Amino acid sequence: GILAFIGMAAYLPVIAKRVRGFDFFGFAMLSLGVGALQLLLDRGGEVDWFNSAEIWIELALSLTGFWVFIIHTVTAEHPFIDPKIFLDRNFVTGLGFIFVMGVLILASMSLLPPMLANIFGYPTVTIGVVLGPRGIGTMISMLVVGRIMHRFDARILVAIGFLLTAQSLYTMASFTPQMDNWLILTSGVIQGLGMGMVFVPLSTVAFATLDARYRTDATSLFSLVRNLGSSIGVSVVAALMVRNTQINHTELSAFINPYNPNLWAASPAAASGNAAALSQVDRAVNAQAMMISYINDFKILMVMTLAAIPFVILLRKPKARPAGGAPAAHMD
């Protein structure tokens, strides 16, 4: 934070003219909507979602905040976020894509550490080492894409990035409790490459046609939508994880009975009703039920990624920059 402040103080130009006042009411209503939604998502799993009065209160506050913010934004003379930015098709489409990226980034990352700890028994340091190459893939991809963007259509790069992300999730959907680290490492690197390939061209195309006076508002909204996607994604996959684990455990437990010859072959003591042996079998069933739930979540994220790719056609290709170096305002 200190380094960022020093960098801004040193290089950002000083704007003496006050462009407009601060819309505190709009900011407060947006904060209410986002804050209540965040509480709803974070607390839902702990208080049994809509069986709790707290969740209904948070839902009402969130809907009220967003509704009042929208009405105020449309009717106010100087709103917190100028609604004219939503007339730009590239920017609106970019918001949709960055929402999906927000879901994919944190939702998949929130699943892997508990999976490695609970099923594979990895210590914390090992989990960090195994997941580290994902960041290396992102770094390499962003460096390469930044150099080749002027040679390739940014929309193609975004589509390729989503395809790589989908490929990594497809690989993750084949995880088993018996696999080694290699599959985790390779899927992480591929996902990192895909995400890095999306970020740079998506940001460029999303802001390419937007008037310069709207870019401050647009940048804030871009980050907000990505964070909302992350919050919603983490909450949804966590809720599905808990629900599916319970369902899978119930279905698998139906086969743990003295009439199943496979149980007699695997553990005669458990088939005979030995409590210690049944406890060991129950732990194995728990691990398998959790693994199936993780795989289901990875498949859902993969389908979501593939479903987003066709919307790349809604983005318009930026024309070459004019001689003066200013961003072009027109698109093909």
Score class of each variant (00 low, 15 high):
Ala10Arg: 14
Tyr11Glu: 15
Tyr11Asn: 15
Val14Pro: 08
Ile15Ser: 15
Arg20Gln: 07
Arg20Met: 08
Gly21Ala: 03
Asp23Arg: 04
Phe27Met: 11
Leu30Tyr: 03
Gly35His: 09
Ala36Met: 05
Leu37Cys: 07
Asp42Ile: 15
Arg43Val: 12
Arg43Ala: 05
Gly44Trp: 03
Gly45His: 06
Glu46Asp: 08
Asp48Lys: 11
Asn51Arg: 13
Trp56Asn: 06
Leu63Tyr: 04
Phe66Trp: 03
Trp67Glu: 15
Trp67Val: 15
Phe69Cys: 02
Thr75Pro: 05
His78Gln: 12
Pro79Tyr: 03
Lys84Arg: 14
Phe91Asn: 03
Phe91Cys: 01
Phe91Ser: 04
Phe97Ala: 11
Ile98Asp: 03
Met101Trp: 09
Ser108Asn: 09
Leu112Cys: 09
Pro113Ser: 01
Pro113Lys: 00
Met115Thr: 06
Ile119Ala: 01
Gly121Asp: 04
Tyr122Asp: 08
Leu131Tyr: 09
Gly132Trp: 09
Arg134Thr: 11
Thr138Pro: 12
Thr138Gln: 13
Ile140Lys: 05
Arg147Leu: 13
Arg147Lys: 10
Met149Glu: 06
Ala154Gly: 14
Arg155Leu: 04
Phe162Gly: 03
Ala166Ser: 05
Ala166Cys: 03
Met172Ser: 09
Thr176Gly: 08
Asp180His: 08
Trp182Glu: 13
Trp182Thr: 14
Trp182Ile: 12
Ile184Tyr: 13
Gly188Asp: 00
Gln191Tyr: 10
Gly194Val: 01
Gly196Trp: 05
Met197Pro: 10
Leu202Asp: 02
Ala208Cys: 04
Thr209Lys: 14
Leu210Ile: 04
Ala212Pro: 14
Arg213Asp: 15
Arg213Asn: 11
Tyr214Asp: 10
Asp217Cys: 08
Ser223Gln: 12
Arg226Asn: 11
Asn227Ile: 15
Ile232Pro: 02
Ser235Lys: 01
Val236Phe: 01
Arg243Tyr: 10
Arg243Lys: 14
Asn244Pro: 05
Gln246Ile: 14
Ile247Glu: 06
Leu252Gln: 04
Pro258His: 00
Tyr259Ser: 13
Pro261Ile: 00
Trp264Met: 08
Ser267Glu: 01
Pro268Gln: 08
Ala270Phe: 08
Ser272Glu: 09
Asn274His: 10
Asn274Glu: 02
Met290Ser: 11
Ser293Asp: 01
Ile295Gln: 09
Ile300Phe: 04
Ile300Arg: 00
Met302Thr: 06
Met302Gln: 08
Ile309Val: 13
Pro310Gly: 00
Pro310Arg: 04
Phe311Asp: 02
Pro318Thr: 06
Arg321Glu: 10
Pro327Ile: 10
Ala328Pro: 14
Ala329Val: 14
Met331Trp: 13
Met331Glu: 12
